[in-house]
Amino acid sequence: MNGLIYAFLAIGAAFNALGAVALIRFPDVYTRIHGATKCTTFGSIFSILAVAVYGIAQGGGAGGTMAVRAFLALLFLLLTNPTGSHALARGAHRSGIKPFRAVVDRLEEVGHGHREVP
């Protein structure tokens, strides 16, 4: 059980670090959203899974509460993170930021007026 917790913590920390580095290193908003969203979601999921395993291993009332809360936090992150980053990408494109060195930009060709925002 301890080995599992350590492995999850290490994976989580490694991918969160990768997300932070990707945020610094990538050249434009869209690629930064790529790196930051994927890596921090994956890393946070594993960090939180480590806490859930710890709670289950502890057992009893306190451990059970801890595991349930950790699973709920995991579920929220999994559902809300991609939606938020999608909203940010859409807002960035509508505010006129072009993708860096893009070989093709179909959305620019179609234009944002392809439907009314409700």
């Binding site: 060195r101 930009d105 179909r106 959305l107």
Partner: peptide, 9 residues
Amino acid sequence: GRINPGIVR
């Protein structure tokens, strides 16, 4: 650092 980005439909 190898990227080749674009927005496709």
